[in-house]
Design a protein around this nucleic acid. Sequence first.
DNA 1: TCGCGATGTCATGGA
DNA 2: GCTCCATGACATCGC
Length: 802
Amino acid sequence: MLYLKKYFTEGLIQFTILLSLIGVRVDVDTYLSNQLPPLREIILGPSSAYTQTQFHNLRNTLDGYGIHPKSVDLDHFFTTRRLLNQVRQLDRLFVPSTELNTWLVHRDSETVVSASSQSSPSITLDNGAGLDDVNSPDATPAMRGGSGAPESTYNLNAADSSLGAVAPEGNQEQGNRDGNDDLTKEDIDLIDILWRQDIDLGAGREVFNYSNRQKESEEEKPSPQENKDRNEEQESWRNGINLQGAQPVDGETGESIPEQLPGLGSQTSLSLQECLRLLEATFPFGEETEFPAPVVTPEIAVSNEEVPSTSQGLPLPQQLPSAEPQLDLEQQWQDIMAIMELQAMEVNNTSLQTTSSSVNATSGTTDSNTAGNFGLSTRPTPINQDVSLHQASMPSCSQDFPQIFNPQLESVSITPRTTMLRLSSSNSTNVNSTFGATNLTGIFLPPHINSSSNNVTSTPILPDPFSTLLEESMLDEISLLDLAMEEGFSQAQASQLEDELDSDSGLSLDSSHSPASPSSSETSCSSAASSSSTSATFSEEGAVGYSTDSEVATVETEEGAVGGYQPGYSKLCRMSYQDPSQFHSLPQLDSISHNHTYNLPLSSAFSEHPELPLSSGKKTVRDKQNSKLQPPQDLLDKHSSRDERRARAMKIPFSNEKIINLPVEEFNELLAKHHLSEAQLALIRDIRRRGKNKMAAQNCRKRKLDTIINLEQGVQDLRRDKARLLKEKMEFIRSIRQMKQKMQSLYQEVFTQLRDEEGRPYPPSEYSLQYSADGSVLIMPRGLTTAEQNRKPEKKQKDKKK
DNA sequence: TCGCGATGTCATGGA
DNA sequence: GCTCCATGACATCGC
């Protein structure tokens, strides 16, 4: 007991100092004189001094209406912690603590009661009004998440059991890592220990029973004191106070949940948490940006689902609580929702399911509602605090991101703005390079913190999540999904388009797109014909049967040479350029090693490749039969071309290859050297003609094939371009929609501030704002026609706003 | 036996 | 007019 006394005395003195820093009046004497009873009650068990009522009924402390004389100080303590926590949680990057989670579980039973008493003012104070912009189509998904409150509560409960007293450690870790110098480590430890006592000294979650919360429910209506508290929180925030280890009771959410119900208030807050986390995760300005070094712990940058949120002095939201106009929050919400939509479609998983899923798909997360809508970071199981940010699914960003920041934020630093603009100008194809291996936690984290406390995060080895998200095929699918969703395409149409993208077109030529394999077969036609001794008798065609005497024995060997023929690629190989010089003009053929001997004349093929196997195994039954029935010379003739046989029969003194391939001059010289008969000359000319025509036909067919291949590729390219253009179109449409919403918001704001000469507001039903070409804004009576406006634009110039 | 693809050949036209 | 080439049409072959 002495220890407790000493401990409390010292700790409370320090704590009082802290409270004074944030403007909270603390009567130390009162506390010291009454500290023991409540402590005793704490030790001995739940009591009126330390129950959920005291825990949550914090608003009673500062308004002078002390509940119990002995519990006032303790209430001060809780109030202080709550306030400090609220200060840190004003950034919205907060996850309800374990106590809060349990509290929500019980709250589930009275959802019906509380649902009706959800006070929008509290929402306004909490997260800014207009967050629940029902009129905004973009906001509807998150708002729909409100229906998932029970599920969320259940999940919170599940997370609660797993978290338990781990929270303090997390707090302390955060506190140690936190770059806030306003508190000494002793202060942090003190606060942390005090926080531990809430749980360790019997004040478990079960203490915060239902009956106590009923008392809270009776005080749902926001009191002026609550507003006062909030003002104090904001004030303390401005003072830069960021206590560590304070009990992570959700100052706003935890306190106001009885009023707001998790279905709306907490969810809205969590939605912003998710949104900000989304921002953090998606903004590419990492090490390269000059974003002011924030005071934030890596856990915040990583996850808010399990982290016992305490110190979260995120710089970004500092602008939010400081009298931020409602419009900004509203606008911000719309922007976030717009991004949510975009990202939901860019996520590589089933985006439709992601966007439509709410709390059901996000079990185990405390902020499952909007997290599910965001389609990212909704892991079914809680993640560690040190989970790398890369492990969160971070879809590519888009041009919508710049609009995330409200003007106030933009005024903080221009660098993010420029970065965002750069990002906005980047299409989806270069997002990957934009993000690259950028450590996204570096966006908000000082480098030293980031590197020291979250090693995993700074590990560059982790695969870039964007690498697989932005493949062309995925883009195509995304575009099609966008098309289906945005343009009212029927699902069948979308699936049809998808099929078209996935499958080859009707012109598909399978994978054998290699160009024609050159074959020199025709170039060496019947080289042996001239050397053979034949006894031919001319038929009516001139081609006759013949008998050989020297080649008979080589028949089977020649067939072995033919055995090199590969029917698998014969299709293209045979459609070959016959001029070997043309092979070099086809670079794609350099890496292809073909057997070009299959179509060579038997004699030449064999002479070039005598080592080829004799049995080709390709002989057909007919060949075998022929080999039995026909004499060997017939087999030779069979494997010779018709012109070769004719040439042999006509005793042409040179090969068909020469006949076909020699230039005209040389060919004429060749004919001149030999004294040939007319029949021989005619045959030679026919051989040359047919040979050339055969090559021409092969080239022609190859060209046809190439043309088809190119056309197929062109079709694929066009389809890809089409998908890309559709995607861009959807982005433009989305951007335009956002701009319209912003315009509408600005319009409302401007119009409501307008006053006539007598200080009366203009009735919206009678007046409207018109925008002139020069950028000025005029207020015009609604009855005034456009023509009149054009004729006399300066008439109402006096009403021009500011 | 038929269908089909590959190949060869012819006719034709253009360069 | 000749040559070369491209190409459609047809025939042949092999599977």
